[in-house]
């Protein structure tokens, strides 16, 4: 091989860097997660975001446990959420005021709001979550909480 074109030389450069400074193994997966998360945030903003109006921590009990309550407001709807974590397992108890038939989602976790406005979600993995509330009255828009950490 006596002649190397510009493209051949750039191929050499590309190969050298790919060989010795390869893309970190899980970088693509992490960037996909970050982008998807940002996109879901964006969708939520378009939906109507509840506002966090209050947060209170309850007394911390044994090691590895935590309990706190969050209060969100959107229009006429009040949402009180009590988050409890014990030994890595989480539990969310929610109250919707005034009570209204809705489906509540946190990622793939789903719950229904009862006549009295209550719902519960158990076993959510620790990390960032947001609850989306979808009124069964389809003339009402869905809305969601900002993300919060369990």
């Amino acid at each position: 091989m006596s002649e190397m074109s510009r493209e051949d030389l750039l191929d050499v450069v590309r190969r050298v860097h790919e060989e010795r400074d390869p893309v970190p193994d899980d970088l693509v997966a992490r960037m996909q997660a970050a982008a998807a998360f940002a996109a879901s945030d964006l969708d939520a903003e378009l939906l109507g975001l509840m506002e966090l109006v209050d947060r209170s921590d309850e007394l911390v009990g044994a090691r590895g446990t935590a309990t706190y309550t969050l209060r969100f407001v959107h229009g006429e709807t009040d949402l009180l959420v009590r988050v409890a974590v014990e030994d890595g397992a989480s539990r969310i108890d929610g109250w919707v005021v005034p009570p209204e038939a809705m489906t509540v989602r946190a990622g793939t976790f789903v719950a229904s709001v009862t006549d009295t406005g209550r719902f519960e979600l158990t076993g959510l993995p620790l990390g960032l979550h947001r609850l989306s509330l979808e009124p069964h009255d389809i003339t009402r828009p869905a809305f969601s909480t900002p993300t919060f950490e369990i």
Binding site: R14, E18, D21, V23, P24, L27, V28, M31, Q32, A39
Partner: peptide, 21 residues
Amino acid sequence: DPSGLDELVAVMTPVLWHVVR
């Protein structure tokens, strides 16, 4: 289509890595 974003990230992240490095 959310999978479009996944694919875009998969296609372009390696390029961005080398440009940034």
